[in-house]
Design a protein around this nucleic acid. Structure first.
Lengths: 227, 227, 227, 227
DNA sequence: GATGAATGAGGATTCATTCAT
DNA sequence: TATGAATGAATCCTCATTCAT
């Protein structure tokens, strides 16, 4: 009996995950409002009405995608984060986490970056909460860095969102075949962010590059088997 | 007669500009696909059918907004750009141009950043061309900087789009009342971009700050009277 | 100009009245929930979308029908009512008004009697208000009659709604060809209501029958040209 | 074995009765067409598909309710009716039977009165037959009364359906807490029906009131344990 | 220049019902 | 007996667009 319920639930969950994956892809390609439930039905091979067994509205589809992404990002971060480490290293870890996830889940990246305002009501509220939690992590790191440096000249919000901007904009221009591989992309972005374009190229501090090649690569590979 | 036609044309143009302004606002607030022509009619005080005297389709509305923005950005750039100046200064000028325009035309900024993919067919082609021209300006500047520095370590596309990312992401988080004023915002962003967050605070090179207060402020004010 | 607006408005109003008439008929025949907007479109010869130029929702259609009926009933009553008259005569007038309207507008009668609970929200509230006003008229007459008779034995609500029940139930059984004509129907119903079935037949008081033949007939004919 | 089948059958019947009770309640509250099978599933705690073990279609649900009600009304009438009694007394008995059942089964009352036309095809035919049989009982009593009185002035259909109207309309206005108790309600309605509102209050004929308090109360209590 | 009236196409959602288990 | 999963058909409604005036 327990077995039956369990397998039944598993079937339900698996189907739902497939639907979410397919939806993310189409949302990414056509935009949330332009994709019709029919598009999703077609892509999943289900009937229109069949979808409604798994989801109450089209909006819920988007919600689930966004929620799941934020949850994953947050969980992975909590596993990765090591308070013992240097602030700079922790910022780098955060970046690796963020970009690692996104570049392994490009459709979701686009949906997260682009359909931020497509949710309404309670769905919106819930996602906003998660997002705020997530943003706060980086903002706190920045704050810590700033106070440690005794530097009052830089505005925390500007510094924080500049990094998010660099990262989240990627979906608009990045082509895997044309552009740098993930590890290098992260490396260069962080170089710019930490040292600027004028001096970034010279930056050869040991802590900076070594991370990427060791722990970093491990971190990335985590993403490969995500839902 | 000619007179009459002329004033008639002027009236036509003025009306169209008003329509575009109103449209940009609503597109920014609700997104292109979610705003109906009815919304625009309501906002402009015109009748539904009346709008179609000025514009053939809803898409044309978006097209005109984007085209006009790019044209303005390009024109202003051409007026501002001085090949005699240092590459770094020219990059700064470009940034000032871009952000100056956008922060004086917030709705358009959002529409440009967010509704990039909402056009189709010929409209899309035309805007893409303009966009490519515009992006190429910065990319060329970056290329020049890189070759001048003899620096082969940094990928031009990454460097270019990192700046665009920082700038174009602003529409997602910037609140005039809460955040830095325009001049400071530009200053800090460029500081990060040029020197990085680790050393940006120390950057006090004369060329860097003085620009903002002199030529910079003039440049910004240009935007104030834009369509 | 004024002319144009006026005739334009007239066109709109005429169309709307036609739509309401057609809707009432179909609502009466199939019930509100079973009739689709398509049915109404077909019946009016308009397109589906065309209907929405006149009405925002299917529910508004029902609302307008009910509102209009109550408004008419109330207005006619106010014109007819003469406070100088005997209470009994006024009750008779009320009955004539009610049945006269309904038997000249059978579809509306059914819709009023049967789709009373099909409205929701504000529509419901508004109609309820009208209905309460309307019911109160009869209830007050009954109250007056009772106190004049010094009769405390009869419950006002029972007495009032017994008459409404008799009248509003007509839509379930009345067939013009098979049953009594309007004037006689009213006559017999009032006879039962006033004197009961045991003695109603004997009731030949002058005020009772004469009314019907004189003022009564005039009252009825009023309904013949209603919307 | 027989035992098992029997208990199985009993179980089946009990379940079905529960389903019908629940359905009647929801049909009464939301109307037949607005209630979905899902609503009924929810109310009964069964699964959607589970219901279909007991009933072939939603319409059958309504059919069974109406059929059962008419069957009960007819059976109870046959047990109650005493041809020896006065016609008037028999009419009173009929009324007591009708209202007694309805006021002890309010949801069914509403469904019977309101969803009369919601059935189609064979279901409709069957219920119509029962209904005709039922109506004929009262109509025959009225005919008998009329011929006994030598009264040709009153139309039998009008007289019959006036009583049904008074009774069946109750569901639209009756609130147990606000209005008269069952026995009094019946008493007053019959008073109106027999003697009219003008003289009904004076009617104190012994047969009239005494019935209610004796046999009447017994009759009512019969309904208390109905399905 | 401007608009009232109208429409075809398409969109999200609901629902009664089925069927393998 | 009972249910999880699925579906075809239908429903209300919106929208961009048109056209006679």
């Amino acid at each position: 009996m327990a077995n039956r319920v369990e397998s039944s639930t598993r079937h339900y969950d698996e189907r739902l995950q497939l639907i979410l994956k397919a939806s993310a892809k189409i949302f990414a390609e056509k935009g949330f409002h332009r994709t019709s439930i029919r598009d999703i039905a077609r892509a999943t091979g289900m009937s229109l009405a069949g979808l409604y067994y798994y989801v109450r509205t089209k909006e819920e589809l988007l919600f689930l995608i966004q929620e799941q992404c934020f949850m994953t990002l947050l969980q992975r971060w909590e596993k990765t984060a090591d308070p013992q480490e240097d602030v700079r290293t922790r910022i780098r870890r955060f970046t690796e986490n963020h970009l690692g996830f996104f570049l392994h889940n490009v459709y979701e990246m686009k949906v997260m970056s682009h359909e931020d305002e497509s949710l309404t009501g309670e769905f919106q509220d819930k996602v906003r909460l998660l997002k705020r939690r997530y943003v706060k992590i980086l903002m706190d790191l920045i704050g810590e860095l700033r106070s440690r440096n005794g530097d009052k000249g830089m505005n925390v919000r500007v510094v924080t969102f500049s990094l998010f901007g660099m990262m989240n904009w990627i979906y608009t221009w990045y082509h895997p075949k044309r552009d740098l591989a993930l590890a290098e992309l992260i490396d260069q972005m962080l170089r710019i962010y930490f040292f600027g374009i004028l001096r970034g190229a010279e930056a050869q501090e040991p802590w900076f590059t070594s991370t990427t090649s060791k722990a970093g690569k491990e971190t990335f590979s985590l993403w490969q088997n995500l839902p």
